[in-house]
Amino acid sequence: MTQRRQVGSDRRRPAAELEPSEQLGVAGPARLGVKKTWKLFLGGAFVRSESGRYLVTADGNDNYPHASRKDARDAVKAAQGALSGWAGRSGYNRGQILYRLAEVMEGRREELMESLERGGASAARSEVDAAIDRAVSHAGWCDKLQSLLASSNPVAGPHFGFSIPEPIGVVAIAAPDRPTLLGLVGSICPVIVSGNVAVVVVSESDPRTTLVFAECLATSDMPGGVVNLLTGPRQELLTPLAKHMAVRALDLWNVAGELAVSLERDAADNVKRVSRREADESAWFDAERGAALTGIERFVETKTVWHPMGA
């Protein structure tokens, strides 16, 4: 444990890059790296799991929170609190915030790449690029989706009728395991562009990038609570979310088998909208499909409004 901590945030830097003093240090490095504590991102704040439990990353380098049912509950609460503010913003404003998120991600490219532990530098680069581009692409949807999903209804009578897309509310997302960052950004963006707020159970096998992404969120004008990130075992976190009566929809990526059945069954308790999809890792890199309007349309309600015409 102590051993791992010593490597700290320098974990991917080859020894050749280390300062001479570090190489030479007989009694350890001249300067001890300051390690980041991995936390949950709830309501715009970085918090430890209320349970006090933690998990260890696959490479054994880091601890991260083992979020509990209560953390899931807190996340929903934070999301609920953010809903009216987020949904009430103009599409233009939401678009600016998402674009700002892309800007911040671009600024943290290196860190994001480092956080992706698999596949080497070039794979990490292409995933980070794709993730940033996915955010940019969705930034542009915010003030356009309504024009495409809305309709003026040619009703047979002296009434004016129109239908508009509206957010559903709190959406619980099971982000895909891989690609970790792109899957996270690619599942969150279509949900939040229309004004929904999200509680995301992030990749179980590689949660580290979540924190860096959370820092991007935290510094990008994204209002607290719009995106809430939970690390921990999928089943343990998704079950209370599927049962939660304030969660209005489930977005399940690569959830199958018994877990899928039990989540969908629980979802019926408050008639949640459930979207369950399988996508292999490469599919996420399809920029066109990844930012398709149909992905956004899954998470809107259609509201129809009627009014008489005649003074």
Binding site: H159, P308, G310
Partner: peptide, 12 residues
Amino acid sequence: EPSPPVDRIAAE
């Protein structure tokens, strides 16, 4: 008092 408004379509 002010008179209440009348909605044309509903009245018809």
